[in-house]
Simulated scan of single mutants.
Amino acid sequence: MADPTLQEQRARLAARALLIRRLTERHEMTTEAALQAVLDAERGTRSPQADLARAEARAFTQEALAPLVDAFQRLREAARPIAQAWAETLRQLAEHLNRAGLTDRDTRPRCAGRPAWQSPYGPPPRKGRRR
């Protein structure tokens, strides 16, 4: 795995600091105990403190993403009538084209005066004959 960039390292340190602060404020842990819990959680160590740090990280992530998730849900609901109207319009267009005989049910293009098996480019060149 590639070494993290300076920006990634700064982001990790900021996330650690935020998580340590949440642990000290919400769970009355000392700064040292919170730091150890965060480091243990990063290493995958199983302990009550590390589990608490992981749970706090999940809670923070959910809190941080809640407005974004809400915005996407509102956008989806707002776009639903437009998408349904487009689908209905396209369905009606296809129906009108079919009734007018302008489409072929098998979706292959029709070429008048030529059997379906015949190439539109003429017969293939004969073998052994150069152009």
Rank of each mutant, 00 (worst) to 15 (best):
R22E: 06
P67V: 03
E32Q: 14
Q7S: 13
T30G: 07
A50E: 03
F72Q: 14
A79D: 07
Q7T: 12
T103W: 06
F72T: 12
A17I: 07
R80I: 02
R105H: 09
P125M: 00
A112T: 07
R108C: 14
D104Y: 13
P125V: 02
R43W: 10
A71Y: 08
K127Q: 09
A66N: 08
F60L: 14
A87L: 05
A15P: 01
L19H: 00
I20D: 01
R46H: 15
Q62H: 08
A14N: 13
T31I: 10
A78Y: 06
T103G: 05
L75W: 07
A57F: 05
R105T: 11
Q84D: 13
L68T: 15
R91G: 11
A37V: 01
D104S: 13
L19M: 02
V69M: 06
R76F: 03
A11Y: 09
T89G: 09
R22V: 03
V38D: 00
R105I: 05
R74S: 01
E88K: 05
D106N: 08
T24D: 00
T45M: 12
L23M: 01
L65W: 10
R99M: 04
N98S: 14
W86K: 10
S47W: 00
Q36D: 11
T89V: 09
T5F: 02
Q7C: 06
A59N: 09
E8C: 06
L102V: 04
D106A: 04
A14R: 12
R91Q: 14
A14D: 11
P124N: 02
E95Q: 14
T89A: 15
R114P: 00
T89Y: 12
Q73A: 11
L97T: 01
A78E: 13
A79G: 04
R108Y: 15
